[in-house]
Amino acid sequence: MGLTRWLRDRRVRRDLEDYQREVLDTHYREVESMYRRMRMWRHDWRNHIQTMKILAAQGDVDAVREYLDGLDDDLTALDMRVKTGNTMADAIINSKMSLAAEHGIDVHVDANIPVRLDIPDIDLCCIIGNLFDNAIEANDPLPPESRMIRVYMDMKGSMLYLSFTNATASAKRTKVGGRFRSTKRAKGHGYGLMHVDAIVDRLDGYLNRNSEDGAFTTEILLPQGG
């Protein structure tokens, strides 16, 4: 019995490590893609100016207006809409907001990190990325008008406070053994929440999840020095 449990725990740890590497790689690709598009846009800036000069010289005002509208759409897609004061948080939040927009989800973020965090960047990335990914997936079954994600981050004394609320098609869920059971079935599903739990526990933080009809909220407090 002891050997069986040891083998099971070892397999879970291995699967969790594999999942962590996969998620980090996905987050990295999303952030890198956003920055790559920004660099390409800046590189093409002179070409855009030259094109508009030619159109203006030809007196084609409608073409200039259409070209500017296209550039405005591109800039909107690339704009770092959220600036928290923390580079890692900015990168992962903005990349995930772009992903949520592709899923037709209304996202509102109120985030402010006015201090240098003790949290390792990789942990912050994993927490925010996993919570966003779970929130996006929970919204997908809903009609577009019902999809929403609300994110709040700020300092509460010496603690960093994070709150994620997302719409969900599920009715109010009950906890089993103090935890909400994952409703996901595919291999690897559920590891995102396990990874968040493990990080919060390792950082001596506090985590609470609350389920209501049509909404799910995760709250986290992480100590910061002093």
Rank of each mutant, 00 (worst) to 15 (best):
M88D: 11
I127H: 09
A91E: 08
L78Q: 14
N94V: 00
H103G: 03
A57G: 11
D106W: 04
V82D: 06
V64R: 01
S98I: 05
N130K: 07
D123F: 15
D69N: 00
I122Y: 09
D123M: 13
I54S: 13
D73C: 07
M88W: 15
L75I: 01
S95G: 10
R65H: 06
V115N: 11
I119W: 14
L131Q: 15
D62H: 12
L75D: 05
K83F: 03
E102H: 06
L117W: 11
T76Y: 00
G59C: 01
R65N: 10
M97N: 14
L78C: 13
I122W: 10
L131K: 07
V82Y: 05
I119M: 15
D72S: 06
T76Q: 00
D60V: 08
I119S: 14
N130M: 06
I92D: 01
A77I: 04
D79P: 02
Y67A: 09
H103R: 08
V107G: 07
M52Y: 13
A111K: 10
K53F: 12
I92E: 05
C126G: 15
R81F: 03
R65I: 04
D79C: 04
M52I: 03
L99E: 08
D62C: 03
L71M: 04
T51M: 12
V64F: 14
G129T: 11
G70Q: 00
L131G: 14
D74S: 08
N130Y: 07
Q58I: 10
T84V: 09
P114G: 01
P120S: 04
L55A: 10
R65A: 10
D79Y: 01
K83D: 03
D90Q: 00
D110I: 03
I92V: 14
G104D: 13
T87S: 09
D72V: 02
Q58V: 05
D79A: 06
L124C: 08
I119E: 14
V109Y: 12
D123V: 09
C126S: 11
Q58N: 12
C125W: 08
A57L: 13
D60T: 00
C126L: 14
D118T: 10
A101T: 06
I128H: 00
G85S: 07
N130F: 13
D62W: 00
A57Y: 12
I54P: 02
G59I: 11
M52N: 06
L55R: 10
C125Y: 09
D79M: 00
L99W: 08
S95Y: 11
E66F: 03
S98G: 07
D72W: 04
D121H: 12
S98R: 13
